[in-house]
Amino acid sequence: GSVVKEKKEKALIEVRPYVEYYNELKALVSKISSSVNDLEEAIVVLREEEKKASEPFKTDIRILLDFLES
C-alpha cells in the first residue's frame, strides 16, 4: 500500500520536468491508484490508458511508465 503510493508519488515528482500534462497525469495516477492493489496492476492499467491516449499525453504516460518500471 504505502510503498506503492510512495513509488508513484516519487515517480510523479521525477517526471514532472519532462511531461507536458502534469496535472492530467497526476489525476490519472490518482484515479488508477484507487482501483488497483499494487504497482504491477497500476502499470498494466497505465499501459491500457497509453494505448487510448493521443499525443502528447501518450508520451507523458510513457515517460511515467519508464520511471515506474525502472
Score class of each variant (00 low, 15 high):
T59N: 13
K7D: 09
V36C: 04
I63L: 06
K7S: 08
R62F: 05
L68H: 01
K51E: 10
V15W: 02
E48L: 14
K8S: 15
E55H: 08
G1C: 14
K8V: 15
V36K: 04
I32W: 05
S34Y: 13
D38Y: 07
L25V: 02
K26D: 05
V45G: 08
V4I: 11
L65V: 10
F67Q: 04
E41Q: 08
K5Q: 13
V4P: 06
D60W: 15
P17Y: 04
I43L: 11
L28P: 00
K58R: 11
V36D: 05
V29K: 01
A42F: 15
K7M: 15
I61K: 00
K7V: 15
E24Y: 06
N37A: 10
E40K: 08
E41V: 05
L39V: 06
A42K: 02
S35L: 10
L39E: 11
L39S: 04
E20M: 15
V15C: 14
K51P: 02
L12F: 03
E6T: 08
K52C: 07
I61R: 00
L28V: 02
E24R: 14
V44L: 14
S30T: 12
E14S: 12
S2C: 14
K5N: 13
S2V: 09
A42T: 13
S35A: 11
L25W: 03
P56C: 03
S54D: 05
S2W: 01
N37I: 06
R62Y: 04
L25E: 00
E55P: 05
V19Y: 04
S2F: 02
S30C: 15
K8Q: 15
V19D: 05
I43A: 03
Y21N: 14
E69N: 11
V45T: 06
V45R: 13
I63M: 05
N37G: 07
V15I: 12
V36N: 05
E9T: 05
F57C: 01
E6Q: 07
I43G: 02
E40Y: 10
V29L: 10
K51H: 10
T59G: 09
N23D: 13
E55F: 13
L68M: 08
V44Y: 15
K10R: 11
K26S: 11
E49N: 05
K8F: 15
Y18A: 08
Y18L: 14
K52L: 09
E20R: 15
I61S: 00
S70N: 11
R47I: 08
E49Q: 05
V36A: 07
N23P: 03
V29Y: 15
L39F: 10
E55R: 09
K10E: 08
D66L: 15
P56A: 04
I61Q: 00
I32G: 03
V19H: 02
G1Q: 12
D60C: 14
V45N: 08
N37F: 13
S30N: 14
K8Y: 15
I32A: 03
V15R: 01
V4H: 09
I13S: 11
Y21K: 11
L39Y: 08
